[in-house]
């Protein structure tokens, strides 16, 4: 086995990725922000900052706080709106050889459907439904935490678009397989998980939460074992492909998710520590494949050997 024979590309329900490493929504802006530090062509795909129908200003600061091997955030979906994204950000991203995934969030099922209708005509490769942001008062996790909520939104969106439809799941539920199955039944093509775990940090001197939103979403290496477990459970429960994420920092971490059942992975918080991590992660995946004589990454998906 040598590097030339290795195939990292994958077609997930029509979403074509040249490699399985995607930038996770909310950590990568619109790609432009990182372009001075990393070659955006290195990514298999980029999932852009969560879009809403209208512009949103987001939550008051402080919005982030560091935690052991992780961080909490409560940005509150600050974004310029879906139209501004298509007009001002998408043309720049399209200059690179990488799949563009539009991540969308709404207050109502109708808003999700409207955005899907708009994005269906845009030059994007897939739509990712954010049914899992824990930091806004309406929509998002309110839908994503019940199978009924998920089913309704995904069904309404499915009618509006033929683009590959990814549904991003929240881990803040008792049984992750329930919303996963509901999304599949409503017509999702792909599931992505996990979004952040709801958390809280308190300043003992002021006796106030550090975040102005009181709570925020936990991400980073601290959540990885939880994420791997949930990806494994979901991959067992559904027949559609899964994109895994949660604290990935290396090729080794990515392989863990792939063995658990992920067809591709997303890297989020680690971009803050190492903006050039995508190349290292891809190289480390290749090195693993050479070591174990695997020519096509698809051979590894879900190949964890359970006791």
């Amino acid at each position: 086995m040598n590097e030339k024979n290795i195939n990292l590309s994958i077609d997930i329900q029509g979403l074509k990725l040249k490699n399985p490493v995607i930038a996770a929504s909310g950590t990568y802006g619109f790609g432009r922000e990182y372009a001075e530090y990393v070659d955006l062509n290195d990514w298999g795909g980029i999932s852009v900052k969560g879009l809403t129908l209208e512009e949103r200003i987001g939550n008051p600061p402080p919005r982030t706080v560091e935690t052991p091997s992780g961080m909490l955030n409560a940005i509150g979906l600050q974004n310029p709106g879906v139209h501004a994204f298509i007009q001002n950000e998408l043309p720049f991203l399209r200059r690179f050889d990488t799949a563009v995934i539009a991540n969308v969030a709404g207050n109502t099922a109708e808003e999700y459907a409207t955005m899907a209708r708009i994005l269906d005509k845009a030059d994007i490769d897939a739509i990712e439904l954010n049914l899992s942001c824990p930091n806004v008062k309406k929509g998002c996790m309110a839908f994503g935490s019940t199978p009924e909520g998920i089913f309704q939104v995904v069904k309404d969106v499915r009618r509006e678009t033929r683009k590959p439809l990814i549904v991003k799941l929240t881990p803040n539920v008792t049984d992750i397989t329930e919303p996963a199955i509901a999304a599949q039944e409503a017509g999702a093509d792909i599931l992505s998980l996990i979004n952040t775990l709801l958390g809280m940090v308190i300043d003992i001197h002021t006796r106030k939460p550090v975040l102005a939103n009181n709570t925020g979403g936990l991400s980073g290496p601290a959540v990885r074992p939880v994420a791997v477990r949930m990806v494994y459970q979901v991959a067992q429960a559904v027949s559609i492909p899964v994109i895994g994420m949660g604290g990935i920092t290396s090729g080794k971490d990515a392989i863990e998710f792939i063995l658990a059942g992920a067809s591709a992975v997303m890297v989020g918080t680690w971009n803050f520590a190492d903006p050039a991590c995508v190349k290292k992660i891809t190289e480390e995946i290749k090195a693993y494949m050479i070591r174990y004589d695997i020519s096509d990454l698809k051979e590894l998906v879900g190949k964890v050997e359970i006791y």
Binding site: G26, T27, Y28, G29, E33, Y34, E36, Y37, K49, G58, N59, P60, P61, R63, T64, M71, N73, I75, Q78, T269, N271, F272, P275
Partner: peptide, 12 residues
């Protein structure tokens, strides 16, 4: 601050 380059929108 997290990213320092305008991507995470944390340092509002």
């Amino acid at each position: 601050m997290a990213c320092g380059i305008g991507a995470c929108l944390g340092c509002a």
